[in-house]
Design a protein around this nucleic acid. Structure first.
Lengths: 222, 222
DNA sequence: TAATGTGAAACCGTTCACAGCT
DNA sequence: AGCTGTGAACGGTTTCACATTA
């Protein structure tokens, strides 16, 4: 994939770590849409167009983008390449994140096969499961190792992030182990709230809960 | 948009239409943990204990629960059965939601197999795909129908909710079709923001974006 | 002229602190 | 005595509106 090398003095631009949490999520969505626009050979947008693509107001878009020490052109809009570079830098694209996955059930399997991680700089470097019939298989191009060897494998080939797709019952313990292996962030799909010391970042995604939120939304919508 | 009639002592046992969005998500998590507690034959909690289980402050728990017109006992805490009934009612448990899934790729497949929906009152009533080699198969106990027959199947066996797990490119069009089939809410896993008329509820879940948020969190954490 | 960038106001949810029940 | 329920203060995000700049 093509990188645009930043001009020398563009390099110095800082990463604001005073970025509002909601803004982070939106930046990720802008990034996705901007790449799509660039693929369509569009190379400029304004805040209204970009806002429509991710369903937020133009004012929010401008506020979010201006937090990056920005580079829009008044009267014109934003250069897409610039935005992609800038958002990418802030979101940690450019770092090749190594990600391990634990729990190769059907969900874990799907996540190993999921196209859409590597484009963002994530590399699934290992997968673990404790079921003997899964160990030794290959899923999504990644070999499945025995979960008992997690510590060993992660010592040899360290990773920064982990995706947890084990049953709820095992999530807590597995999270602890990952932490001890030097994992710095966990994306948790187990239906339980993972709580770890604050030096490990955790994002919980509960699929059933999302569906329940949707149901509430429908139900209250009348 | 919505009128608020100031009738004083209306339904104390009714569904609060004014529940903050973040609270809805948390209620769903409380619900999950409460069921777990009940399974362990615990039948009472206080706000601090419940808060620890989902990683929120006791004050938030109390505020959320009191929005349900509540029934805690001062000096004591909450009766778990009562909470489950009450939250369940608000979240639309008790309704048997019919859910169809569109897009039986690896993710769709995993979602069909995902245990954890039916406990909450969701029934996967149909699945659709357009690939000939998937049509006619059975995944997670659900027969996969031809996507071309979506309109017909949904006329015969209507559903309220849909899970979208198709490629981004097809998401928009599929969403439109589902809307015309009477679907009232869509849980969208396609990496694109689905925008539909406001009579259809949409929740977008972008897996790559979640991972990117995590990476940001780790990166900014030093 | 057209669209950004941004003070300032409005809004919303969280936190605080304590009165009120049990 | 203990914990809930909640007014009031607080803090953070969004919205507004406009000065600014290409």
């Amino acid at each position: 994939m093509d990188q645009h090398e930043p001009s020398p003095d563009e390099q110095a631009a800082e990463i604001p770590h005073d970025l509002p949490q909601p803004a982070v999520g939106r930046l990720s969505l802008y990034f996705r849409e901007l790449q799509r626009l660039l693929d369509s050979e569009v190379n400029s947008v304004n805040s209204q167009q970009l806002g429509r693509l991710v369903d937020v107001s133009p004012a929010v878009v401008r506020r979010d983008l201006s937090a990056l020490g920005t580079i829009g052109r008044r009267g014109v809009g934003y250069d897409i390449r610039t935005l992609i570079d800038r958002i990418g830098a802030v979101m940690g694209s450019g770092v090749q994140w190594k990600v391990v996955l634990v729990g190769v059930g059907s969900l874990g399997n799907a996540l190993l096969r999921y196209r859409g991680f590597e484009r963002l700089g994530f590399e699934l470097s290992a997968a673990f499961d404790s079921a003997p019939d899964r160990v030794g298989t290959i899923a999504g191009g990644v070999a499945v190792s025995d979960a008992a060897e997690m510590e060993q494998v992660l010592t040899e080939r360290p990773a920064e992030l982990a995706i947890l797709a084990v049953p709820a019952q095992q999530a807590g313990e597995t999270g602890e182990r990952l932490m001890k292996c030097g994992i710095q962030g966990i994306l948790n799909f187990a239906p339980t709230t993972l709580r770890l010391p604050s030096n490990v970042a955790v994002i919980n995604v509960d699929l059933a809960s999302e569906l329940q939120r949707l149901a509430f939304s429908v139900q209250s919508h009348r």
